[in-house]
């Protein structure tokens, strides 16, 4: 990560979809997220994932490597989070720790047992989660945070809250830049070869300095904005973006497709 470039954020600013209405993108991604949550893993979630990927790599022109990189964090969580779901707990008393190997109902790992049912549950979770995450990333890589903040006004969230969130976004990049620069300066003077004990105070010093700098900046920003006429509201022009029926209809068609295939699959399976 780098101050100028949180990968998703940079993609959102460069996205050809930036000029689309935020509401339309929220509607599309939101529906895909809900579909990933509510539909069956097969074919619903798989189709959601496919649609999100195709839209991102196709019309939204997001680099495949970026999508792959961004999926890293959720994948790690899924790995850790689904492990306990895949395994059943048979209690300490039931099985000795030395118990390792195939049992009648699955693979035993001491008091844990990995069963086919557990693996199926874990796989279903993976499907829901990966599809949902891709649908969220579709929104995140095509819509800068500030556009979303502006859109939140529709939900009647009070202005001061939106302003604070927007300022947080601006200060975030300043603070991140400062913190990373301080860490680099510490490494340049061999901060990373200090004793383990000293390294802790070095991290604390970096954070403390960054905090003081940001505090100071926030105060100076206040003074700077007062000079530009700031009294109690951070007014800006919000861009007007045309409604796109093509976009809405295509999105609608995708969703209808996913749901009808899901329905068809369920009916066919039940027959």
């Amino acid at each position: 990560m780098n101050a100028q470039n949180i990968a998703i954020d940079a993609a959102a600013w460069d996205s050809p979809w930036r000029r689309r209405r935020v509401g339309e993108k929220v509607l599309l991604s939101g529906s895909l997220v809900m579909t990933a949550l509510l539909s069956d893993p097969w074919p619903g979630c798989v189709l959601v994932a496919a649609v999100a990927l195709v839209l991102m790599l196709g019309p939204a022109r997001i680099r495949p490597l970026l999508v792959l990189g961004v999926m890293g964090a959720p994948a790690v969580f899924l790995l850790i989070g689904t492990l306990p779901v895949a395994a059943t707990w048979h209690g300490m008393g039931d099985l000795a720790w030395g118990n390792l190997g195939w049992a009648t109902d699955g693979f035993a790992l001491g008091p844990l047992r990995i069963t086919p049912g557990g693996v199926a549950r874990a796989a279903a979770l993976w499907a829901h989660s990966l599809a949902g995450t891709l649908a969220v990333i579709l929104l995140a890589t095509t819509t800068p945070m500030v556009d979303l903040m502006g859109w939140l006004r529709i939900l009647r969230i009070p202005d001061p809250l939106i302003e604070i969130a927007s300022l947080t976004y601006r200060l975030l990049f300043l603070l991140l830049g400062t913190t990373l620069a301080i860490r680099e300066a510490q490494r340049a003077r061999l901060g990373d070869v200090a004793s383990w004990r000293r390294r802790w105070s070095i991290v604390a010093n970096a954070l403390g300095s960054a905090l003081i700098t940001t505090w100071d900046r926030a105060t100076r920003l206040q003074a700077g904005l007062e000079g530009r006429g700031y009294e109690d509201a951070l007014l800006t022009l919000s861009p007007t973006r045309a409604r796109s029926w093509a976009f809405l209809l295509t999105g609608g068609a995708c969703l209808a497709g996913i749901w009808s295939s899901s329905l068809a699959w369920t009916l066919w399976g039940a027959r």
């Binding site: 990560m1 001061p160 302003e163 604070i164 969130a165 300022l167 947080t168 601006r170 200060l171 975030l172 300043l174 603070l175 991140l176 913190t179 954070l207 960054a210 905090l211 940001t214 505090w215 900046r217 926030a218 105060t219 920003l221 206040q222 700031y230 009294e231 109690d232």
Partner: peptide
């Protein structure tokens, strides 16, 4: 209005701390 800046700074700091 200064509190807005300071609260935003605190939010940014929490984000960076977690990163």
């Amino acid at each position: 209005p200064e509190n807005k800046m300071l609260l935003a700074a605190a939010g940014a700091f929490t984000f960076v701390l977690s990163a």
